[in-house]
């Protein structure tokens, strides 16, 4: 157990005591935060997210601001934010709705790939999320199976973790001299991987969603070639970075499974993807 985990868990215990919450368990660990399941006095389960003191205050503020503005059934609801001081250190924390259905990533590990119908069903509300974020001028920048959680009914996917959200109306936090912008490389768009901030907009989320949905269906990255070494993710990521073409197999698969939208969604240049989320939603429904 790391020092950070001890610190954050201890802080979480203290927050629970202060707020009259019952501590449950650690359910997730991110780069600069930990998430705990807690329960309020009414027995409602909540997610307590405690941020490490190493977390960027600017990013935290932006995440909180973004979640406050969002109001969508498939986006995690922010219920409360505050600070708590433990052992002389002040921690930011958030209380969000608790999603007990687990992550999409876990489901894929447990049950394997999704079939076409399941991907279609999964894609629809997530595209609706992109429409909502687009209207708010927000870019999530980290759409991936581990950031899709399910509510208790196990049916509704919910996008979580707005830790690296970009607000297009605000000054960028990411420095342009950095070679790579924030995001999970496997699912990140070429513009994120090249830190091309001017091109990082909703079409970047569209790319990540396309990669994720293809991965859900076939268990591989759209830019992966059959000749790549098994488990060698870097080859595919390198092709994304350099905006190379995708394999013939990718085109064939996307068409054969009846999800041709994935071809356009994962185009290397934003200009060649769907221009607006509404266009994507229409095309997705027409498949």
């Amino acid at each position: 157990m790391s020092q950070t985990q001890i610190d954050l868990e201890s802080a979480a215990l203290q927050i629970c005591k202060q707020k009259g919450l019952q501590f449950g368990e650690l359910v997730g660990t991110g780069g600069f935060k930990q998430v705990f399941r807690v329960e309020d006095a009414n027995g409602t389960q909540l997610a307590l997210k405690v941020l490490s003191r190493r977390a960027s205050s600017a990013r935290t503020a932006r995440e909180i601001e973004a979640l406050r503005r969002c109001n969508h059934p498939n986006i995690a609801k922010l219920l409360h934010i505050d600070q708590s001081t433990f052992a002389g250190v002040t921690f930011d924390y958030m209380l969000e709705e608790f999603l007990s259905g687990g992550t999409l990533g876990k489901r894929l590990q447990t049950h394997g790939a999704l079939n076409r119908e399941e991907v279609l069903v999964l894609g629809k509300p997530l595209i609706s999320v992109l429409v909502h974020l687009y209207d708010l001028g927000l870019v999530h920048r980290d759409i991936k199976p581990d950031n899709i959680m399910y509510s208790q009914d196990g049916l509704s996917p919910v996008l979580v973790d707005f830790g690296i959200v970009r607000d297009l109306s605000a000054v960028s936090i990411t420095k342009t001299f950095l070679p790579v912008g924030p995001g999970t490389p496997y699912f990140a768009s070429p513009e994120q991987l090249n830190n091309a901030k001017g091109q990082t907009n909703w079409r970047s989320d569209q790319f990540s969603l396309g990669v994720m949905l293809y991965y859900c269906c076939l268990g591989v990255h759209p830019y992966q070639f059959p000749s790549d070494q098994p488990g060698d993710d870097m080859a595919g990521i390198e092709r994304v970075v350099t905006r190379q073409t995708r394999s013939i197999e990718f085109y064939t698969n996307a068409k054969m499974i009846g999800l041709p939208c994935l071809i356009k969604m994962t185009e290397p240049w934003p200009i060649n993807r769907f221009r607006t989320p509404d266009q994507l939603a229409t095309a997705w429904a027409a498949q």
Binding site: A196, G198, Q199, N201, P268, W269, P270, I271, R275
Partner: peptide, 13 residues
């Protein structure tokens, strides 16, 4: 190579 697509991507943002 790629400059046209890059410009077009920015223009259509």
């Amino acid at each position: 190579d790629g400059r046209s697509e890059e410009i077009a991507s920015i223009v259509t943002e």
